[in-house]
Amino acid sequence: MTNEPTRDGAAGATPCRLCGGPTAPAFSARDRNHRISPESFRYVSCAACGTLTLADVPADLGRYYPASYYGVPDSADAAVARDENAAHRLELLRGLVPQGRLVEIGPSYGGFLELARRAGYDVSAIELDAGCCRFISEQLRLPVTQSDDPAAALTGPYDAIVMWHVLEHLADPAALIASAAAALAPGGMLIAIAPNPESLQLKLLGGRWAHVDAPRHLALIPLAALAGEGAKHGLEVAWSTTADEDALRSNNFGWSGSLAASTQNETVARGLRLGGELVRIAVAPVERRGQRGASYTIALRKPSR
């Protein structure tokens, strides 16, 4: 992996954020996506489950989420239109859970949530950001709970709990998996999308991989580790992939974003993004095999009684 200079400190002293196991140094990374600061952040790898954990979480982590991180739509239709992933995620949901009570964790401005409501689901949300909560409540007129602890905010029973690129931001992902398992109705599904730390891109790019997104991503959890954590609470893998539409978009951003982030010159960056697209095309046959895509989608089912 590509390494950058790290801060001082014993990386092995940081326990795995998923399973609590011992860790060893993996790589370091800077905030290449938003450039909030020039600091370097250490990631460590768990010997037991393979999860990558951010070792030195900033005390002021909130400042690494700039106002532009979200961006405010001006209507429900605009919220749906700006979410290029909403339609195929809804198609995935309908194939797994055709109807019922749905909660989305971390919906941002609720584009997917609104589309699910229009498809007939009984929807609600749990969201950290106050502005997003206000939009969901006032513009979408949907129930939303503002909370920085989604595990505690889940009430249930839910037929579906969905979280699209949320787990990697959580201080305690294991607690959320446990809470979600308890909150699901029998036969219900927990559906999640997350960056894939077993991807070809991470192996080649290391700390320069755009999906590391230091320091906002606190843990990069392997698909098998997440499945194992679910199994501890009685959840079974119903479906998983690293080659769906979400993964294809992640592949593109992973190559283009990683290369473009190496410069602050926008003209050069445009050329590098194009170069990243050419790399993506060249390695696409490899990324589609053996769980090498830049992200994975997994559906965990709670058995029916």
Rank of each mutant, 00 (worst) to 15 (best):
G188K: 04
A182G: 14
D172P: 03
A181Q: 04
I161C: 09
V166W: 00
H165M: 12
A194E: 03
G187P: 08
W164Y: 12
M163N: 05
A178F: 03
D159W: 03
L190A: 08
S179F: 05
L167C: 05
I161K: 04
A192D: 07
I193G: 03
A178V: 10
H169R: 11
P173W: 04
D159Y: 07
A192P: 07
P195H: 04
A175V: 14
P195I: 02
P195K: 02
S179Q: 11
V166L: 11
L176D: 03
A160E: 02
L176W: 04
A192L: 15
V162H: 01
I161L: 15
S179P: 08
A178W: 02
A194T: 11
D172S: 14
D172W: 01
D172I: 06
I191L: 15
A192K: 05
D172M: 06
A192W: 05
I161D: 01
G187M: 13
A160V: 12
A174K: 07
P186E: 12
L167F: 14
I177A: 13
L190K: 05
S179Y: 08
A181L: 11
G188S: 10
V166D: 00
L167K: 01
W164I: 08
I191N: 00
V166N: 02
V166G: 00
A182N: 10
M189I: 15
A160P: 03
G187W: 10
L184A: 10
A174F: 05
A182I: 08
D172Y: 05
M189Y: 01
L170S: 08
A175T: 14
L170Y: 06
E168H: 09
L167W: 01
L190E: 04
D159K: 06
G188L: 05
W164E: 00
M163C: 13
L170F: 13
L184S: 06
A175K: 13
I161A: 08
A192M: 13
A180K: 02
V162I: 15
D159C: 10
G187H: 12
A174S: 15
L190R: 05
I193R: 01
A182V: 13
A182S: 14
L167G: 03
H165Y: 09
L176Y: 07
L184G: 03
A180C: 14
H169C: 11
L190D: 02
P195N: 07
L170K: 07
A160D: 04
P173K: 06
V162K: 00
A185H: 07
A181S: 15
A182M: 11
